[in-house]
Amino acid sequence: MWIALSYASWGISIVLALWMLYDWFKVDTTFSEEVLTSSREGDLEAVSEKHRI
């Protein structure tokens, strides 16, 4: 039972790793680098948190 479980673990790991690689490739080819790296620190901060005294 435990041996089977360990094979199942390898199986799951490989499938999920491949899925992530596939999704990564798909995202990187679908969207431009500008869009993907457009997050800026403090963006939401500036809207939701007012440092007003």
Partner: peptide, 29 residues
């Protein structure tokens, strides 16, 4: 922990380590 619980000769912990790290990375992804 799993290997200690199983107590099966020749069972290696690498499979469970890999599954832990990959599944959780997937969840985070």
């Amino acid at each position: 922990t799993i290997v200690a619980k199983a107590g099966v000769e020749g069972l290696n912990h690498n499979a469970f380590i890999a599954a832990t790290i990959v599944v959780l990375a997937w969840l985070n992804y």
